Amino acid sequence: MSLWLELEQAGIGDSRPLAAVLDAIPWNADGLIAAIAQQYDTGDVLMLAWISRPALEETLATRQVCYWSRSRQQLWRKGESSGNHQRLIEARLDCDGDALLLKVEQLGPACHTGRPNCFYNAIRDERVCVISVAQ
């Protein structure tokens, strides 16, 4: 039985060793999975980024969110240049382990544009409308 099926059938409070779960994650060909950052207290979805195993391990160890930058091909510690850090409150994997939800405390804007989150382009009818401005 796969680890994901074991967890699907497990009861509340059941657990598995972290190393075994990380080994079972279906990392893509680039060694990444999608990571959604969500403000822990409001539920606002802040951004989507990619995370590698080393980035996830660093995030869990330091509680400061670290992603993998596909454009720079290196670890990207959120806020290292902007000062807009994300402090990890809780990390959750989805049911088949191919997406990560990071509940964070966002310090400053989440988006590199200075907006509170990266989802400021709303699709409305036949148009895409900008719905927020830089803070």
Rank of each mutant, 00 (worst) to 15 (best):
S71F: 10
R72G: 12
R77Q: 15
L56Y: 06
C66D: 00
Q73N: 13
W50F: 09
G43W: 10
R72Y: 05
L56H: 03
Q73L: 02
L56R: 04
T59E: 07
A49W: 01
L60V: 03
R53H: 08
Q64C: 05
T59Y: 04
E57W: 11
R53L: 05
S69E: 06
L56S: 12
G43H: 12
I51Q: 04
K78H: 09
E57S: 10
S71L: 12
G43P: 11
R70Y: 07
C66S: 13
E80Y: 14
P54Q: 13
V65F: 14
R70N: 08
T59G: 08
L75G: 08
A55F: 07
E80D: 15
W50K: 14
I51W: 03
L56D: 07
D41V: 12
W76D: 02
T42H: 10
W68T: 03
R70I: 02
W76I: 04
R53I: 03
L60Y: 03
E80A: 15
V45T: 15
S52R: 03
L56K: 04
V45P: 04
C66I: 01
A61T: 07
T42Q: 11
Y67R: 01
S69I: 04
K78G: 02
W50V: 00
Q64E: 06
W76L: 06
L56A: 10
R77M: 09
E80S: 15
G79K: 14
S71R: 10
L75F: 08
R53G: 09
S69K: 11
L48A: 10
W76P: 00
Q73Y: 00
R72D: 10
A55I: 11
Q74H: 05
P54K: 09
G79Y: 12
R63G: 02
S69P: 01
E58W: 13
E80P: 06
Y67T: 01
C66E: 02
Y67G: 00
L56T: 06
T62C: 02
V45Q: 14
Y67C: 11
S71I: 05
W50Y: 14
R63N: 09
